[in-house]
Write a protein that binds this DNA or RNA. Structure first.
Lengths: 239, 239
DNA sequence: AAGTGGTCTAGACCACTCA
DNA sequence: GAGTGGTCTAGACCACTTG
């Protein structure tokens, strides 16, 4: 069984894929323990050392959490800890800013040239676009325009997008999120943005241009956030 | 032997420490291969699996590179690839900016309050301060003020600091660098900074406030870079 | 062909959690 | 005390690089 060396992909990577697929498909549910190492090893016909290597990989990818004496649990990607992982703007005190959505609108359309570039799409592919204004302490602090490939979120509805949180949507649609790259630059606020943020036109604002990728490297979301920088900063970690 | 379970620290971590110390002390030199897995395992009296775990750790910490069929080599931390790892400002085209030093001055003194906070020092501890202007395409692009704990760089000379590169100094003084955190914010250029960068006073500039830590979590360098943002952006990666 | 790291096995024992 | 993950062993065999 198990492809008898026909595929050269190491067994522990195949095991990772199989377990990741269970999680993506919702067969293993957030917060619930999966079978222990030796049971899984027996189920897949491998040694426990190999299964452990696969589970370690899953943990490094934030899909599961292992706790000695307890078990291995599927992570809830919408938990505070994991959901805010891509939001790196901090208030002056250092605490993360959690923006509340004050308005949202969704449209669908063919991908623009920049969307094709950022999301690795063809011009004929469709995207959903969500535009948001985020509040912090009841003040508008970010104007956000996000695009996602329509193919990844089939049947995404206006209702879902109104409370748009990419981590929640990804979990719902069985997409496992990996890393993100973010370009931080300075821009002069356009009239429209300045008005929304309640600042003077041509004020310097922070522009956060981000692409989130799935674990399999497919781009999942491109968003540009325009953010009034007063008492705020972007926190990056280089490892 | 080897502390007979008196210490609870797992063996593979102790092995990592021992090998890391050899590298820090210069007993294992950059570019040179270290003994193979089974020789090392024999030398330390452990199984090869345990030694492999230690070597994998060293590789994840960027201290060595392993290549199948070749061997395990100590990394040169001043190589282009590793040295620029903490420099995240990019030109509009996406390429890394390598700044040339146009002027440098070094002073020594007791740590200020902010230096104590960033570098986890006591008020009586000393720091070396290096002030730089960096050029890109022969234009001044960053004013940089760096502070390092004097205790980590005993006898640092003016001559060494003139070509200040933290990765080179760290390797020279046996300090293994780990991660860095960087705060990116917007500031209005002071008169002095504006003059140096050749821009108008009160122009919006990027402020890059960064602390680099050693692998053992000790802060090694705090620096503030003030950078004219025209055609430049900060690139962050979130994993 | 010899030598290296990479994968995999089939266990043993330890440390931790919880009923 | 039963069950979990964490550490460790002593190998075997595979894949890759180099003389």
């Amino acid at each position: 069984m198990r492809s008898h060396r026909l595929s050269r992909r190491p067994v522990y990577l195949q095991l990772r894929d199989a377990l990741a697929e269970r999680i993506a498909k919702g067969q293993s549910k957030p917060g619930i323990a999966i079978p222990n190492e030796s049971d899984l090893a027996r189920e897949f016909g491998v040694s426990s050392g190999t299964m452990r290597k696969a589970l370690d990989l899953l943990e490094s990818e934030r899909l599961v959490t292992r706790r000695q004496g307890r078990g291995t649990f599927v992570n809830d990607q919408t938990s505070k800890e994991l959901a805010l992982r891509f939001d790196n703007v901090r208030a002056a005190g250092g605490q993360r800013i959690v923006g509340k959505i004050s308005s949202a609108e969704m449209t669908e359309g063919a991908a623009s040239q920049t969307e094709c570039r950022h999301l690795q799409l063809q011009p004929r592919d469709h995207v959903y676009r969500i535009r948001h204004v985020l509040l912090h302490d009841d003040q508008p602090y970010m104007v956000k325009e996000a695009s996602v490939p329509a193919a990844l979120f089939p049947g995404l509805t206006e209702a879902q997008s109104a409370s748009y949180r990419i981590v929640a949507l990804a979990q719902q649609f069985g997409i496992l999120l990996g890393k993100a790259t973010e370009n931080v630059s300075i821009e002069m606020a356009s009239e429209a943005v300045a008005k929304t943020l309640g600042i003077a036109t041509a004020s310097a604002i922070l522009v956060l241009d981000r692409v989130i990728y799935a674990l399999d490297e497919r781009p999942v979301e491109w968003r540009i956030g325009r953010c009034h920088p007063a008492n705020r900063y972007y926190l990056a970690e280089t490892t």
